[in-house]
Simulated scan of single mutants.
Amino acid sequence: PDFRKHGAFFTAFVEGWGLYSERLGIEMDLYDTPAKNMGRLSYEMWRACRLVVDTGIHSKGWSKQQAIDFMTDNTALSTANIEAEVNRYISWPGQALAYKMGELKIRELRAKATSELGNKFDLRDFHDVVLGQGAVPLDMLEAQVNRWIETTKAN
């Protein structure tokens, strides 16, 4: 429907799927050299630092310089990247948290489906359910996955 095509952008879902799908690379052995895995870990550290910076600025009252110093000490980003990141989180409170919440919810739903369905669990079907309705709020995603689990169990 049009309201879905032109409506809200659900950061937790969209960015959460991005983070979740990056982890699929681990399962698929895509990070098959130490250098590739180091790159993955570097990005993971960068995202963890985003959470700290977002919280530091908006909850702990950090100055821009404190946030820059934290990212300089804890990431492999360039000075220009760090400044851009800090500016982003100054102007967009909670975005870093939304990313991670989305990833964690999708991982939680996958673990639940895996546990409840046992040998009936199919990863491709799970991904179809997660992506099938497009970007949705996380509570709607959870309801979709729960319905799929119950339907799959019943069959």
Rank of each mutant, 00 (worst) to 15 (best):
D2H: 14
L141D: 00
Y20R: 03
M140Q: 14
E27I: 04
K64V: 04
D128V: 02
L51F: 05
G61R: 03
W92H: 15
G102L: 00
D128G: 07
S91F: 10
A98F: 01
Y43E: 13
G25V: 00
E103M: 11
F3T: 13
M45P: 03
N37E: 13
P137S: 06
I57H: 04
V130T: 01
V145N: 01
M71A: 04
R147W: 07
A154I: 05
E85V: 13
A48R: 09
E22I: 08
K100V: 09
W92N: 15
N146T: 14
G39N: 06
C49V: 06
D128K: 11
Q144D: 14
V52R: 07
S78M: 07
K5V: 11
R124F: 14
H6Y: 15
L138M: 08
G132R: 00
R40V: 00
D2Q: 15
F9E: 10
L30Y: 14
G102S: 03
M28W: 10
K64N: 03
W92Q: 15
S91V: 11
V86N: 02
N87R: 09
L51R: 06
V86P: 00
I82V: 09
K100M: 11
E15Y: 08
L141F: 03
E15T: 03
L141R: 04
M28A: 13
E15I: 05
D128E: 15
L104A: 12
S21E: 12
G102W: 00
K112L: 12
V52T: 14
L104G: 01
L131D: 03
L19C: 09
K120H: 06
Q65N: 09
A113P: 01
D29I: 09
T151E: 12
E15F: 08
V52F: 01
N119S: 12
D29R: 13
A84L: 10
G94H: 01
R107T: 07
M71I: 06
V53G: 02
A35N: 09
D122R: 08
K60W: 10
M45W: 08
W46R: 10
A67Y: 01
K105I: 05
K153Q: 12
K64A: 01
P34T: 02
W92E: 14
F70M: 05
Y20V: 03
D73F: 07
L138A: 02
A143W: 02
V86E: 02
N74G: 06
T33P: 02
N81Q: 15
S42N: 11
L131H: 06
L77M: 13
Y43C: 10
R88W: 07
P34V: 02
L123A: 12
A84C: 07
K36Y: 04
R47L: 10
P137I: 04
Q95C: 02
V130W: 00
M71C: 05
N155H: 13
F9H: 12
D139R: 03
W92Y: 15
D73K: 12
A154Y: 07
F9R: 12
V14P: 00
N74D: 08
A67H: 01
I57G: 08
K120V: 02
T152I: 06
K64I: 03
T11M: 10
C49G: 12
R124Y: 13
Y20M: 06
G94L: 03
G94W: 01
S91D: 15
T152G: 05
F9Q: 09
T72V: 07
G39A: 06
S115P: 00
E108Y: 06
A135T: 01
E108T: 08
S63D: 05
L123Y: 15
